[in-house]
Computed example of a mutant assay.
Amino acid sequence: MSVILIVDDDTEIRDVIHVYLRNEGYSVIEACDGIEALQALSQQDVQLIILDVMMPRMDGIKTCMRIREKYTAPIIMLSAKEGDIDKIMGLSTGADDYVTKPFNPMELIARVKAQLRRQNLLVSREAAQDNITINELVLNIAEHHVSIRGKEAMLTPLEFAILTLLATNQGQVFSADKIYESVWKERTGYSDNTVMVHIRNLREKLELDPRKPEYIKTVWGVGYKMDK
């Protein structure tokens, strides 16, 4: 049974999400802020995190950054802000999805299922593939491990999935829409910013100079690729 952590300072919102998740058969734990969330993660294995942005003591952005220092579970961020810049900020800190308040609980449940389904499909696909080495980049798909220039690169699940997609199809150019559909396992629903932010994060972690990428290259007007 998948364990899901809800992090929100609003008790009513936590209660509503809790009920819907439990009705779908998930095990649920709760935290009212980022500090409690980090404590919960240190005590229990969690498969997915629903994380509010505006919280006391430690907000969602800082909490997301702290979570990504140690954990790779998918993170769905909740926020009352709707602008693209706010979505980019959330995704830049390591979140995998973004839902604005007020939200339809069933839409949130659908996002939860999509994230967990993508994770399961990724694990199944990884188990059947060998390691991939591209120059100083080593991708151990079975162990979900990436090293660059001899040092481990800490990637989020979505970053790892994007890298795996490009590395296992070297030379093939993928548009932002195609990457989204292949990795998120759903039809494109966002602007190109969603994929763009994850690509930028990957480059920050893998490239010596993200402005002159050696590994993940841009084909202007088309998309992204990794060369053979």
Rank of each mutant, 00 (worst) to 15 (best):
A127E: 11
I132M: 10
A73K: 06
G34I: 00
A31C: 11
I13R: 01
T188F: 07
V3W: 10
R200N: 11
D130W: 12
M77T: 08
G25K: 12
P213N: 10
K217C: 11
G34F: 09
L139N: 07
M106H: 12
R149F: 14
H198M: 05
N140F: 11
L165R: 00
A142S: 08
L5G: 06
M58W: 06
M196K: 15
K212H: 14
I75T: 01
A128Y: 10
A80Y: 01
R203A: 09
Y180L: 08
I35C: 09
P210N: 00
A127M: 11
A161Y: 05
S147M: 14
A37W: 06
V219N: 14
T72C: 09
I13V: 13
R203H: 12
E214G: 09
V53H: 02
E159F: 03
Q170G: 05
I199L: 08
E30P: 07
G25T: 08
F103G: 01
E181G: 06
L122M: 14
G221W: 11
T188D: 00
I75R: 04
C32E: 09
E24N: 15
N131R: 09
K81D: 04
I179M: 05
E126C: 09
G150E: 11
R125F: 11
M1T: 10
K217R: 15
W184S: 05
W184D: 03
R211H: 12
E126T: 02
S124Y: 01
K151L: 08
K81R: 14
A142R: 13
K81P: 05
T188R: 12
I141S: 05
V219L: 11
L116A: 04
G189M: 01
I6Q: 04
D177I: 13
G189I: 04
T156E: 06
L139Q: 08
G60F: 00
A73E: 03
L121V: 11
I17T: 08
S175M: 05
D227R: 03
I162G: 06
H144P: 02
A110G: 14
L38V: 03
Y20T: 01
D227A: 13
E181H: 02
I141M: 14
G83E: 14
M1H: 10
D9R: 03
K178G: 05
K70H: 15
K62P: 04
T218S: 13
N193H: 12
D177G: 01
W184N: 04
M55W: 07
L48N: 03
F103T: 05
Q47Y: 06
G221V: 02
R149M: 03
I162R: 00
K217P: 09
H144T: 13
K205S: 13
A114I: 13
D130G: 12
N120G: 11
I216W: 12
